[in-house]
Amino acid sequence: MLKALNIDPGKCTGCLQCELACSFENEGVFNPSKSRIKVFNFHDQGRFVPYTCTQCDEAWCMHACPVDAISLNKLTGAKEVNDNLCVGCKVCTIACPFGTVNYNSATGKVIKCDLCGGDPECAKACPTDAITYVDADWTGLDKMRKWASKTDAGQQAAH
């Protein structure tokens, strides 16, 4: 069964271990600005919300890519960027309505969550289980997907 990142913002303390683990695993540096998961701080509510790609079925990024540089990893369900094919045109960064594909000007390529090939470092680094990697069927991601699917864009893509 496919697994997915399950994010429970209620458990997040804003420690940013996930961002450090992500940037170290993927970019080789401890630098939150290079992380593919981002913790948003709603300081007026004392709330932290980790946010990253849901590997959505619609795969807006993958379909928008003009050079076939984003593909589905059938084992993990992740949409993965192939750096050798990516030309850095950035169309996927505006096509993804969730804003989870970013352009990295240092490499001239786009970056997005690839679930670390099926062993996501953010989940392993999270000390409070705010981020877990669980069977896709019972993740809270459904909540976000539902939110997306009730929209015009989502209805279009659902077909």
Partner: peptide, 15 residues
Amino acid sequence: TDHMGVLRGLIQNRT
């Protein structure tokens, strides 16, 4: 360059 797609999301979802 960060999270630019949400502009599309917010517009097209009429949030």
